[in-house]
């Protein structure tokens, strides 16, 4: 058989297949299921309301709050300086620069921590870093920061300090005057922002 015909018999079916199948536009997962499970088990993605409150009050420029609830819910109530990326929209390329970056510390929140955690799982599986989840979500935030429960007189000093901080923070965020100095007693354990390694730009051409 002529080599040209052999080539035709090989290339035409391959060409037909490649013309018929849709292009693969999915992004490859960077983390395996096992790796992700390890992270989920350790729970390092959670960041407590106290930590977030401290950063909000000190106007920490590295903090970026991201509301993953729907736009309607976002309109009704949101934390200060928050951007709204509804969970259903998380893979929209428009938002990629926000959730795939190495400058800011992103904190996802929703009413509970469920939706925020789902957003985190998706971004984490894509290998994105610096994304965290507000522990307990807005419900827990309101309970702890906005309406903190007064500890009893016999509580240890840390409890009282914590209460004072929360009360101050709640007032600060609620717009009232702050009498206490919240920054001082705030827990300062802040997740470290890991610099994302810049993908090497491939060079080419002659």
């Amino acid at each position: 058989m002529k080599p040209r015909l052999i080539l035709a018999y090989v290339l035409i079916p391959l060409g037909l297949i490649i013309a018929a199948v849709p292009e693969n536009t999915t992004k490859p997962y960077k983390l395996t299921a096992d790796e992700l499970l390890e992270e989920v088990k350790s729970g390092t993605q959670f960041i407590s309301p106290d930590e977030v409150a401290a950063m909000v009050i000190s106007k920490d420029p590295s903090l970026q709050l991201i509301d993953v609830r729907s736009a309607a819910e976002f309109e009704k109530f949101s934390l200060p300086n928050t951007i709204n990326i509804p969970l259903v929209d998380i893979l929209n390329p428009e938002w990629e620069d926000y959730i795939h970056q190495d400058v800011k510390l992103n904190v996802f929140y929703s009413n509970s921590s469920n939706n925020a955690n789902q957003a985190w799982m998706i971004t984490r599986q894509l290998g994105y870093e610096n994304n965290y989840v507000l522990q307990g979500g807005l419900n827990f935030w309101v309970k702890t920061i906005m309406n903190p429960k007064e500890p009893s007189e016999l509580s240890p000093n840390e409890e009282i300090a914590k209460y004072n901080f929360r009360k101050g923070a709640g007032m600060a965020l609620g717009g009232a005057d702050v009498s206490t100095q919240p920054g001082a007693s705030a827990p300062v354990k802040k997740p470290v922002i890991t610099k994302r390694k810049k993908k090497k730009k491939v060079q080419g051409g002659c």
Binding site: R4, A8, L11, I12, G15, L16, I17, A19
Partner: peptide
Amino acid sequence: SRGMLIFLIILAALAMFWVGE
């Protein structure tokens, strides 16, 4: 789509090979 273009290029190339021979 990329695949469709490639398929068309394959057909064009096979025709050119025939002319070449």
